[in-house]
């Protein structure tokens, strides 16, 4: 735990001074305006919550995948990747801590999107169940960090990975219902989408804003956590494997 926190703390300290880690959040207002323009043009004010949540979730997922890659790239260039490999702690632990810190900052995307809706279109996104929203955001953020670790591992293995990492992680957004709820996508993708933590998370976030009552709250929170934990298990395992692999090839030191 103290090792995770060490990563978390150091990223807050360094990350505040490294705009590239949280810069993606700044795309949120523009994207919010885009989504809101569409729903206004089609006269669907009932979709306001969707239009606000979509850009925030997109930028948060982008921030987690991007941060993981940037941490590895930075550590490799600075020879810190080797120094981590020489410690008794698995690299995944501080990396998760560091990604959590960035994701915590990136949560600002949610109020940012809401503020944009209010300032530009005068739309008030009233949240009906603030506690459910908070809980949904916490578990979804944690699951994002955990799952993004899988993509981080790819960056360790291949320096080229950073270029296709974002596109490789894109299906998660689509199948995770970030843009439109999974229910609106073709039926045959539903089973796949339900295996992705994000589809449970985004539905819950939207329900917490618009639904009269949120059904199956615990089950749905549990699903986000369960699938997030699966991502964590896969990510840490994969990272351990690729860290070992690069000590065999020697690529750990190639900057």
């Amino acid at each position: 735990m103290s090792r995770y926190l060490a990563g978390f703390r150091m990223q807050l300290r360094a990350g505040i001074r490294t705009p590239s880690y949280w810069m993606t959040i700044l795309t949120t207002p523009a994207q919010t305006i885009l989504f809101l323009s569409v729903i206004t043009a089609f006269d669907r004010p009932d979709l306001t919550a969707h239009a606000v949540i979509a850009p925030a979730v997109v930028s948060m997922w982008g921030a987690s995948v991007w941060t993981g890659g940037a941490i590895v790239r930075n550590d490799r260039w600075g020879a810190m990747l080797e120094l981590h490999a020489a410690t008794p702690t698995s690299y995944a632990v501080p990396v998760i801590g560091r990604m959590s810190a960035t994701l915590l900052l990136s949560l600002a995307a949610i109020p940012l999107a809401m503020a944009t809706a209010w300032l530009t279109f005068g739309l008030d996104v009233g949240v009906r169940h603030p506690w459910v929203l908070a809980a949904a955001l916490v578990v979804t953020t944690a699951a994002m960090v955990s799952t993004a670790l899988i993509f981080t591992s790819m960056t360790v293995l291949s320096r080229a990975a950073i270029t296709f990492q974002n596109s490789a992680s894109y299906p998660i957004l689509l199948l995770g219902g970030a843009f439109v709820p999974l229910d609106l996508l073709p039926g045959w993708v539903h089973p796949i989408g339900r295996l992705i933590f994000l589809s449970w998370g985004t539905d819950l976030v939207r329900d917490s804003i618009t639904a009269a009552t949120v059904e199956d709250l615990w089950l749905r929170l549990g699903m986000v956590l369960l699938l997030g934990a699966a991502g964590l298990a896969a990510g840490t395992r994969l990272l351990r494997m690729v860290m070992h692999r690069v000590t065999v090839t020697g690529e750990i030191s190639v900057a």
């Binding site: 103290s2 060490a6 008794p88």
Partner: peptide
């Protein structure tokens, strides 16, 4: 501080 934590 960071490395101290990683070395336990």
């Amino acid at each position: 501080e960071y490395w101290a934590a990683l070395y336990g």
